[in-house]
Amino acid sequence: MHTIGEMYLTFLKLGVVNFGGGYAMLPLLERELVDKRHWTTMEDLRDYFSIGQCTPGVIALNVSTFIGQKKAGVAGALAAGAGFLTCPIIIILIIAAFLTNFANYPVVQHAFAGIRVCVCVLIVQAVLRLWKSSVVDGFTLALYLVIFALHAFGGFLPAKIPAVILVLCAGAAGIIMATVKNKKNAAKAGAETADAGKEETK
């Protein structure tokens, strides 16, 4: 029960500061869940983002649910999701009821110009941190560049390829490449044992 309450409160806090889309949440999650609470690892977080990207719904909510489930089962998942949604719901209800031109106030615009710069920096830091464990060889580097190019400059193509399709193709490419590599390694290992066998018979 303690964990469920803690789960709700943790994601309540994260929901308040989740500006600028799901990816901006990565550094916040790292700080709160990896460094402070040790609920998960940075590598697992990245994998949850990969999955959250190709399943329906808001990425940040998907990642929250994932962590909640892993740490405290279905109840944990619901607590994390509910915690994450609480603040956005309250804020929008207030805005819908009272502040019709909220986004046009100069003070709001200036504050968010500043926050956007911060979000940008936080995202760069997240990429730098995940680079080493994600881009591990020539194949993954090539995949990174291709996906970046297709996703960033998709507007120049006759039809923009949806992110889901890109992610699914990358997963398929990973499976094919890993299988090919495993076969090669197996063949190599086979050849080596055969050689070793020859040596021994000599």
Binding site: D47, S50, Q53, L143, F148, V167, G171, G174, A178
Partner: peptide, 14 residues
């Protein structure tokens, strides 16, 4: 294998 491909794709999206 899928994650081997998903990881670089995911940080490309980020």
């Amino acid at each position: 294998g899928a994650f081997y491909g998903l990881r670089p794709a995911s940080i490309a999206m980020i």
